[in-house]
Design a protein around this nucleic acid. Structure first.
Lengths: 114, 114
DNA sequence: CAGATAGTTAACGTAGTAGTAAATAGTTAT
DNA sequence: ATAACTATTTACTACTACGTTAACTATCTG
């Protein structure tokens, strides 16, 4: 579970979480991310390095301009985190029998999202 | 989303995550947690303070011996984190149409856990 | 080629966090 | 009351992480 370590500390930073939230709406360039997060380019570059290292995002080149790279989310780390969280939350399912209701709520939310 | 900050940094520490994993099997005393995590009592005490501050665990007294307190998991922060993760993962649902399959997998896992 | 643009890296200072050992507080037992 | 037990708090130290400024790389444009 060493990966969870990296994933969670990466996500513990508000700026990096902001990046994730923003990338949720589509791929962005480093500059756009820095502007939106109201931080300097070097600072954002470091954050992106962390996010890349933990596999939370990946970078891809752009055809027109080789200076530009766009970042987008990678799914794997989120799935791993989700899996761990599911295990933890199973606790209340076993103990209180409220797990079913919880699952129901999740399904509803999902249906809405579809 | 300031709470997520505290929750995620609390969970980013492997010792604290070990505590959570252990509490998943039932309430434990500080000493038991320290022993299981192979760390000193003072160190564990600090970790527990963090976990308490973020609401991930709560302490309750024991009837027989007033020296003892048992720690157990609190649900709220996990639900909040789950909610944020759901939002993030909705990304792939919208983009790839794989959300339904994901929900399916989750339901299966839940059925098994029941 | 010279200059501008996008982004990353380097060096530095600062602040937060984890660990240890020693001291403290509250409770139980002889 | 004295001693033992459980747990926490208090210095104190070491390490890590973040931000900023400046320098550097690579690419595009006039």
């Amino acid at each position: 579970m060493k990966d969870l370590d990296a994933t969670l500390s990466a996500l513990a930073d508000p700026t990096r979480r902001h990046v994730v939230d923003l990338l949720r709406t589509g791929p962005r360039r480093a500059g756009e991310l820095a502007a939106s997060a109201e931080t300097s380019a070097p600072a954002m570059s470091r954050h992106l390095r962390v996010l890349r290292a933990t596999g939370l995002v990946e970078a891809a080149g752009v055809d027109d301009d080789a200076r530009l790279r766009v970042y987008r989310l990678r799914r794997e780390p989120f799935v791993a985190l989700q899996a761990w969280l599911d295990q933890v939350e199973a606790f209340w399912g076993e103990q209180l029998g409220a797990f079913k209701a919880h699952a129901e709520r999740r399904s509803t939310r999902k249906a809405r999202a579809r």
